[in-house]
Design a protein around this nucleic acid. Sequence first.
DNA 1: TATTGTTATACTCTATAACTATA
DNA 2: TATAGTTATAGAGTATAACAATA
Lengths: 149, 149
Amino acid sequence: MRYANEVGSGYPDGSLASRLRLAVVRLNRTLRAQRAGTGVSLTQLSALSTLHKCGALTPGELAWKEGVRRPSMSRVIAALDELGYLRRRPHPTDGRQAIVELSEPGAEFVLADISAREAWLDKRLAELSEQEREVLSRAVVIIDRMTGR
Amino acid sequence: MRYANEVGSGYPDGSLASRLRLAVVRLNRTLRAQRAGTGVSLTQLSALSTLHKCGALTPGELAWKEGVRRPSMSRVIAALDELGYLRRRPHPTDGRQAIVELSEPGAEFVLADISAREAWLDKRLAELSEQEREVLSRAVVIIDRMTGR
DNA sequence: TATTGTTATACTCTATAACTATA
DNA sequence: TATAGTTATAGAGTATAACAATA
């Protein structure tokens, strides 16, 4: 298959797939490094952010939304619980399930951390033109759809 | 600071920074999972791809291009050397440095793997419209610049 | 003394498999 | 038996600190 935008063009280094892959790998590394020493990892922040957006969820639902397996989410939840950033309570009708939701400190952290400590990315974005931010905004929508969100 | 595109808007879940961060974290997870069991990890593939594009490099240069520290790249290089996908030779003028470059099998692997096994991303991209691929292509250029590439 | 590369070590992220409790 | 969640264990990815060789 060939497209003007080089999907599967046979020229790996220049194909959109390769370029997108490399860009994502590197931006992910950079973003993780930015969070070193903040007390909450990028993975944990992502879970907090989803809880903030979606409200109370079961661990399984949260795992699905984050795109990880349940055991992985169990560990993230345990760490955030340890930090006091979420609460766990029993499911009202199904004794196997649980409900997790942000605690007040957790909600405060999300607001404070994402808007204040996410300075690096905010700063880079602020340096872009309005058109460039629009491109990224549209790219996010496309990527979300590609990853099943 | 406020922009039409919500940079630092104080609404974390909807800000461009948050949306971009979440999209990148999730796409990165998905791409890594796609490579499970292929024998070469996404990190290793990324290094091979850079060597393919740039030709012979010192380990330090490769680390810089990939955005990792030198010890991290040492391990990636050792693994790829073990697989026979690259060669190491002494630097012609500086005895401290080395030169790494793709071996023939390494070059073949890059071409075969990226164009053939990168099927998942290629397929997702093929399902997009030409306009959407154009958006992603432009986003990659912007992200590369943001991460110093 | 400074720089390049490697080794030692540790921590995070994530997975699969096995276990427990409930449906 | 099937499902939700957790625990046990392992492997990848990355970092910092310490070391060896060379400039």
